[in-house]
Design a protein around this nucleic acid. Structure first.
Lengths: 338, 338
DNA sequence: AAATTTCATGTAACCGGTTACACCATAAGA
DNA sequence: TCTTATGGTGTAACCGGTTACATGAAATTT
């Protein structure tokens, strides 16, 4: 790395001490206007860029914020990131993005790295929450050791009561979606969900269950799929589901990927959405929404979730003693056709 | 920030000098095995986390890599980021993500911030390249002043000859897409493009133009749209285009957002893709691809672009003197139905 | 006019690592 | 056995900022 100018260089050239230069840099104390002017000019001339490492070291604090998400390439998280960056920019935070690929191991690695950098705060979406108890303990310890404010995002964990958080009320969303289907006359309703060791899957299931129970409709185990939230498994199960003799007349897909899996299976059979079978998906699918193809979905404003996350972090940094805050966002049903 | 353990603490407890601790930390020199063991144990016990700021400061170097993209929430860039993180992880780089929102001003801000952090390298997708000459000069200066390897990604700039880069050969892609349409019998072909002050728009236009000229088909100015690469404008133009009396029988959309704009207009009219009008889009649209809805597109492997970008950066860091490298990726036509 | 406050600035310690250099003990070579 | 390499370690300077404290001059108060 070629040598950069330091405040020493600037100080020498301006004929002042480095302390004065530092003062100008931080506007931390009054400096005679003409001296300040002179120093600023030299800085500009020399293209001075203060070393963040030195600043962080002496201040014992950084302006870096860590973000750990499980899938950067999922549009849901893309929008979240967008929301986060918008606010981070305004507050001059630097964002360090880590993609955990839903691996607890990568979460761990990221947390260690972020700690070395003494991040000012962390926005954390835990990797698949079906980690073993041991992993959970390790991660909890790492979170504690981070010694910085943390906002848990999207996926509740058992260490939840210690941190601020932003979540969607998926249970309510699925409850209402199910109710909407029932009101439209459906009783045989499929559910494309993930395994029940995941908090989110449990919540979604509960919403579905509650609506079914309230309506007095018995639940068919074979209509309920517990796989994961990726496309492939949902696709294969949907194929089976669609070829059942006594198949459901409606399907609930528990995230955007499972919606796609279902749709793929449906279109492969040459069937048409809503006409041949009803469906409500969780999360919008941009393409469908835009071409107005009557895709019913539960809308979750991911951008807003991101903005809330960093807002919470900001507040916590500003006021470490403030009471814990959990923001629960309410998804909105977008129904065209059942 | 609560006090963390430092190498001094570790050294004291182990009864050695901090230099020895540092040696253990970096495996930079031989340390007596039992001493090393002892130090490592204490580190583990005390949960020691070396300060990145201190390390960076004394080494005059960081392991941070900056990434500037214009739209984190565009799936195209989401996939790129995914590719980048995959390789960055392996090399223990820390990624700092900046979203420029296609604003040269934010590019500038990000570059200044990254410079303060003395990033080890930068992967840079310039904001809208129709920046004024002045802005261009400012940005070029900032890039030079960064004093670190840079890889230009996706959008060529005029300072290109100085940096490594990864790009798609969009001209060829559009040329072949146009040719495919012509071979299928189309002569009236619409083009949804951005204004010609953008390098990418020029390249795409050129591909189209070349194919049309070679086939001896005169180009109709009113079939060609020069707007931007967002959905809204493409949608409005598409509406006009579709309602023309003598309208095109095929349309080329120059990126994923313009494809969506076109599709929206099309579906709003109750028309159907391919049946009523042919279309080839640049970039896949996940939802369409998956449900096999016969959406024709030019596939660009964004994940691979990301991987190439960081690979190039890595190589350049390892060997600053190596000749410049420009990777040109070839898009692939995915045609179902013309 | 003397005492006190305020402004502008310098001095020096400190943040937590890295590393050139020096040193001693031991092992290898002559 | 004496010299010479080598292994293991300590000392201290350095990286580039921040900041508590001190100081002298100017402005304000009494």
């Amino acid at each position: 790395m070629p040598k950069e100018f330091t405040i020493n260089d600037i100080a020498r050239e301006a004929g002042v001490s480095k302390a004065t230069v530092s003062r100008v840099l931080n506007e931390s104390a009054s400096v005679k206007p003409e001296t300040k002017e002179r120093i600023l000019n030299i800085m500009k001339e020399r293209n001075f860029s203060p070393s963040a490492a030195a600043r962080d070291l002496s201040r014992q604090q950084s302006n870096t914020i860590g973000v750990i998400v499980p899938e950067v390439d999922n549009p849901f998280f893309g929008e979240i990131l967008r929301g986060i960056t918008e606010i981070a920019d305004q507050n001059n935070y630097m964002l360090v993005c880590c993609n955990s690929d839903d691996s607890a191991e990568k979460d761990k690695k990221a947390l260690l790295m972020l700690k070395e950098h003494r991040v000012r705060g962390l926005i954390y979406t835990p990797a698949v929450d079906y980690t073993t108890k041991e992993q959970q303990i390790t991660i909890n310890k790492l979170l504690r050791d981070l010694n910085a404010p943390i906002v848990i995002m999207d996926r509740p964990t058992d260490s939840l009561e210690q941190y601020d958080g932003v979540f969607f009320d998926d249970e309510k969303a699925m409850y209402e979606a199910t109710k909407a289907l029932i009101q439209a006359g459906h009783t045989k309703i499929g559910l494309l969900n993930a395994t029940m060791d995941r908090v989110l899957a449990r919540g979604r299931y509960k919403g579905y269950e509650r609506a079914m129970n309230e309506a007095g409709i018995p639940m068919e185990r074979r209509y309920i799929f517990e796989g994961d939230y990726r496309m492939t498994k949902a696709y294969h199960f949907s194929k089976k589901l669609l070829s059942m003799e006594d198949r459901p007349t409606a399907v609930l897909a528990c995230n955007n990927r499972t919606s796609l899996g279902f749709l793929k299976a449906l279109y492969e059979r040459g069937e048409r959405l809503s006409k041949d079978i009803a469906c409500i998906g969780l999360d919008r699918i941009e393409a469908f929404e835009i071409i107005n193809n009557k895709f019913n979905y539960i809308e979750r404003d991911a951008n807003q979730m991101g903005r809330h996350a960093i807002r919470l972090l900001n507040d916590r940094i500003a006021c470490p003693q403030k009471p814990l805050e959990q923001v629960i966002l309410t998804p909105v049903l977008k129904i065209h056709n059942l």
